[in-house]
Simulated scan of single mutants.
Amino acid sequence: MINRVVTMQRVLGQRFYSENKRVFLRKLKKFQSIGTNDLLPSECFDNRVVLVANTASKCGFTPQLGSMQKLYEQRRERGLTVLAVPSNDFGQQEPGEEDEVEKFYKNEYKVEFPITKKSKVIGPDAHPFFQALEEHYTSEVAPTWNFDKFIIDHTGDLRAVYPNDVDPLDPDVVELIDGLLDTLPQNKPQK
């Protein structure tokens, strides 16, 4: 089910959730690490739940980087990857060079989770992950501002979209992530 204060019914009309898109894992694997041309390692995505946020250093929601880090610290061993995608698309709030962005995230918020190269998140030049959001769902699912959050399950399906004003540590977000982490093969009780 997709959450964005917009339900899956509204976003997809009469399509049922069982129509798993499973396309997002391939798109996630196209992200490059900040400051390099290297793709992020597959281990960031394989058999993991991924929270993707389009981020910006100069935004009123920037303190959510601290919440993202805390969530990552608490759940990375269970299979959560948090992914920051710096973007200057909204309000020109990520104007710095990549080395400045990385330094700010790591120094100010102690970010240990992966940070991608600066990317477009809207429009025809958007990163393939963000293009797929709109292509496979609708423009209502695409980012509307900095710090929109997208949760992808281990099969590569989009499971939730939370708007920028929802903190990553909001109980609804945490409950959904914990439920998805419980479905990971490595977290299921051995029989």
Rank of each mutant, 00 (worst) to 15 (best):
V173C: 04
V5G: 14
D99N: 10
L51Q: 10
T183S: 15
R22P: 02
F24Q: 03
H154P: 06
F45H: 13
F45L: 11
F104R: 04
H154C: 13
I34F: 06
G13Q: 02
I151N: 00
K149P: 15
Q32E: 14
D38V: 07
E175W: 04
H136G: 00
A142T: 00
K29T: 06
C59A: 13
K21R: 11
N88W: 07
Q190N: 10
K103I: 04
F150P: 04
V6R: 12
D165T: 13
P86R: 13
L181R: 07
E140L: 04
G66C: 12
G35C: 12
V23S: 09
S87Q: 01
P171K: 07
F31H: 02
T155H: 08
E77Y: 12
F147L: 04
N54Q: 11
V85Q: 10
P168A: 04
D89E: 06
P128H: 01
T183Y: 14
V5S: 14
R75Q: 14
G96L: 02
T155D: 15
G35R: 10
T183G: 13
V50Q: 10
Q190G: 07
A160R: 03
P41R: 09
E112Q: 12
M1W: 11
L51S: 09
W145I: 01
Y17F: 11
V11H: 00
T116M: 02
L65F: 15
Q92S: 13
K103G: 01
P95I: 03
Q14F: 14
V52K: 02
D170G: 02
V50A: 08
Q69E: 15
C59E: 05
F61H: 13
D99I: 03
L40G: 06
G79P: 12
E94I: 02
G179F: 05
Q69M: 06
V161W: 00
D165I: 07
C44I: 03
V82R: 04
E102W: 06
